[in-house]
Design a protein around this nucleic acid. Structure first.
Length: 169
DNA sequence: CCAGTGATCAGG
DNA sequence: CTGATCACTGGA
């Protein structure tokens, strides 16, 4: 069953944890369907969080994070990799969860490449799209937490938050 | 270690 | 317009 708006409007730290073990579904134009279990996520927690893009203010790129949870936030990094994020939280609470790994595809850049994510997914509704959504899964998940990756610029307080969630089998 | 690669944003 | 920066990966 597709995860609904009630799920996505929770805080990013909650959603990031609960997304572990859930099924990410991607349907291509030719009908080919990919299904992957989400195995690693990171939470970005709003305007306060120096590691969150939205802490730099409301810009065309960060705009979608201010929407109610349940949309896709994508951006290109280093001119090569599309980062796939899920917008979470209530309206005007700019939060998102980065999908870092799905099954054997470990690495946020590889995830975007594997699923053929591009700019056209910016703002896509995860509750209403026919080409990308996430389904609930009953599996119990064992996970550990760790600091987030690649955010040295954020300062110690935010850099050290254990907001990376890694599924252990 | 570091090159590749291009959108994005603040500043003139 | 310019130039710095970047939630990364892959190859030396």
């Amino acid at each position: 069953m597709k995860l609904n708006t009630d799920f996505y409007t929770q805080d990013a730290t909650i959603v990031a944890e609960k997304l572990l073990g859930k099924i990410l579904v991607r349907v291509h134009d030719n009908g080919e369907t990919q299904r992957y279990r989400i195995t690693e996520t990171e939470a970005y927690m709003g305007a306060e969080d120096k590691a969150c893009h939205a802490s730099k203010g409301r810009t065309p790129r960060t705009e979608v994070m201010f929407a109610e949870g349940g949309r896709v936030y994508v951006y290109l990094i280093y001119g090569m990799y599309w980062m796939l994020n899920v917008v979470t939280g209530e309206l005007n609470h700019p939060q998102a969860v980065l999908i870092r790994a799905i099954d054997k595809i470990v690495g946020s850049g590889k995830v975007g490449r594997e699923l053929k994510i591009d700019k056209s997914f910016y703002g896509e509704s995860l509750t209403g799209s026919a080409r990308i959504w996430i389904e609930d899964a009953p599996d119990e998940v064992i996970f550990e937490t760790a600091p987030r990756v690649g955010i040295d610029y954020a300062g110690d307080e935010w850099k050290n938050k254990p907001w990376r969630f890694i599924s252990k089998r």
